[in-house]
Write a protein that binds this DNA or RNA. Sequence first.
RNA 1: GCGAGAGUUGCCAAGCCAGGUCAAAGGCGCCAGGUUCAGGGCCUGGUCUCGUAGGAGUUCGCCGGUUCGAAUCCGGCCUCUCGCACCA
Length: 925
Amino acid sequence: MSGFDMRSNERECIARWEHAFEADPDEREKYYLTVAYPYPSGAMHVGHGRTYIVPDVIARYQRMRGRAVLFPMAFHVTGTPVIGISKRIANGDVQTIGLYRDLYRVPQDILDRFVNPMEIVRYFSEDYQRVMQKCGLSIDWRRRFITVDPPYSRFIEWQYGHLYEEKHVVKGAHPVKYCPLCENPVGDHDLLEGDKAEIVKFTLVVFQWGDARIPCATLRPETIYGVTNLWVNPDVTYVRAMIDGDAWILSTEAAGKLALQDHEILVTEEIPGAGLIDQMVSHPLCGDIPILPATFVDPDMGSGIVMSVPAHAPFDYIALRDLQEQGRYTSIRPVPLISVEGYGEIPAKDAVERAGIRDQNDLAMEALTQEVYNAEFSRGKVFEKYGGKPVREARDDVAALMMDRYGSIPMYDFDNRQVICRCGGRVYVKILHDQWFLDYGDPCWKEQVKVQLDEMALVPPEVKSEFDRTVDWLKAWACTRRVGLGTKLPWDPAWIIEPLSDSTIYMAYYTIAHHLKAIPAENLTPEVFDYIFFGEGSPETVDRETLDLIRDEFLYWYPYDYRFSAKDLISNHLTFQLFHHRAIFPPELQPKGMVVFGMGLLNGAKMSSSKGNVYLLEDAVEEFGADTVRMFLVGSAEPWQDFDWRNELVASTRKQIERFLKVVGEARHAEGACTIDAWLASRLQHRVMTTTAAFESFQTRQALQEAFFGVEADLKWYRRRLPEGASGGAVLQDLCRTWVRLLAPFIPFTCEALWSDLGESGMASLAPWPEVDEAQLSPEVELAEELLERTVEDIESILKLIPLEPKGIRLFVAPDWKDEVFRIVAASNDRTRAVREVMQDEGIRKRGREATEATKQITKLVLKLPPDLVKQLQTVSLDEQVVLEGARQFLEHEFGVPVTIQDAGESAHPKASGALPFKPAIVIE
RNA sequence: GCGAGAGUUGCCAAGCCAGGUCAAAGGCGCCAGGUUCAGGGCCUGGUCUCGUAGGAGUUCGCCGGUUCGAAUCCGGCCUCUCGCACCA
């Protein structure tokens, strides 16, 4: 089609679609799909593009299927990231400003306003909507909201009121990363360094030294039975401190850490490490042991004092050996307590000697320690005299025993010590009190979710096991924070509900969001929501008629049919929302299905704004056109597979759309009729079937393959089969009408334009999905074409091999008795014994060796042909001679030589005997 | 480390659950030819190896096993992705 202006067409479509997808309840069947809403802190990139385009393709398909489709969108602004961003911009942080000004291209005057976090989300939620519209997303924008809108907060308050009443929200203490300088808990995005650091729970094993306690932090409390000594760094100054009323000796650093962890600490005096050396300490589980000097002991690690288990800790073994090589402490012997396959009596010794470690400064020590720890944890067992349990069980048992009887307390620290806040200060672990938790550990609640999971449609089904695991593994989730945007906890307003916890049932909110905009937020009391969602009570603040209207709309759409999200959210959001639905809504309103997406890559690497490895969605749309972007994103992989955006591949997608445009442009005026038309019409019905089937199982890539490349392949053969000079019959007009509709979900802009060109009124986006027209199906015609196609292929492959210049082609079709053999073999359920079965037929048996030979070949052929083709051949009787004779002109034209067709049974040509059903013998002369 | 997925012919990707349809669809890329053809677009053909007859041989991460027969089933190993929490 000449003169097609992609950009102006896109603009026209966006205008035409502005209100086209606003969905209201009506008499049709509904289809409600939702996608996880975005956090608008930056511009959309092509990865986001797929997240929203794939569901849009589904939404468009369902709409054409005649369903009332609700596809809403909102913006999640709860939490701390934008607060951090605006602080950084206010502080003149070069990297952040560069990102927003250069990569996201935010105009300077707007950037200046970003010192207010709300300006950031306001700007980018507008930006998101604009780009989403540019991509043709068929969203009902009337329902849009952001998660700090007052009506939404009222809704969250209502939700949490119920959760609290039902005891799903409970109080407790919780360790967090904390910056004493900022006096705030810090999230990973607030960190300058150490964003991967994990909080580890150590056990402080408490030794007695006179009236004082000496704690050693360990991850392996079970090794207490093998402790031979403690290590103290003689160059470090320790402190004596009153901790919760008792005297403790530990490093200054450790005292500071414990002060943040629920303990009262008062440092009373300093004690030089050297003064502790050679003192005797005791523990009920290991007796009296000495304190030895070790310079490797780090006061900033644990308590600053280490318990030594030389039999199982390579570091301890080496340190002791080093001392003993100087002739000191030679009476101390490692005390083993764990047996582990692959190591001798003293695993640490084995490992050290095997690795040829020279002294404690050896660089391989770290890895060696890991090796021994892992081996003992996964395969080790403690000795019978200590209980004989596997290490992984004994560890917890001993820790519990120590906490209970021997004065142990937990101590939290990071697994890797460099954790630095953006403010530059050191981050510590702090126990937060009065923290509120969602009690996902509750076995009853878990069970309810499990039941729901069993009933849901999960796409792809493999994700089921991951969901099950997540439900098992989830425990109490701290659901409130001190800082950030969000809704205040209604009964304890010093807390803000945390982002993952305020976005669990908002799919229900979408169904009524547009109505709530007309009601003053203060009137949206919990009673109002009770009425809307449960039909209970009689609220005064909103009139009954309005309430009924809202409730009806909620009941029309709910429950949602499918929720779409990337797989990284399985372990939190997608599972959380199931918990919350179970807790809030009745059984008939539970979620029906989820579709889990793969991740996106850009040029083979992970997309990351901070690393600059992003391609903005809007840039892609500008460069290639919205339909190209859509088609590429949908066509490169199925939704649940990871996909990779590569510009050089996208360009060819654009050519494909242009080809489609051209073909439809040319074909829409086709007239007349050709013999092959019936075949094309029949094939088209199959394409409709397979495309529809693929859509029904969310295989958008497969659907596109069928709808685009499948139809294209059919057209190719069709054109080849047209009489010379013909350009196609009126069947092409039908094909165009169907084809445009098949592709409309994928490339709606192009299809919208073509639909008008085809003289159709109304929008392609709202046109009915093509139905299979049974009357157009003609299996016999398709079978005949299949025979022809295979024969042509065979002739071509022979021609390629032989160096002769062909003068003529002779085809021999198999005699009838071979058809009979074919039918017997095809019907046989044990094809290895087909010969025997065939030979039971008297008529065939008479043919002797010829029949045996043919049966063997036919058996091979039956195995080789596609099963449904074999099935068809059993039922449809195909007169091969008639078919080939009918295509003789075509064959002669294709190969440029005379073609003759004969019955193989009536020829003496040696090749003729090789003719098989559906595989004529070919002789080239 | 633990849990969940995945590894197919240059690339992407079907097939694997229900073993013979599989040298393995489709797309991209590349090569060749055609086209009143600008090195572009479009069309046609080719694209593991061998082959003067439609065939044969060797392939589906690696190693073994089951079977008349395995890309498909079983066991072990290697590699990659996602998650491991209070964070969107």
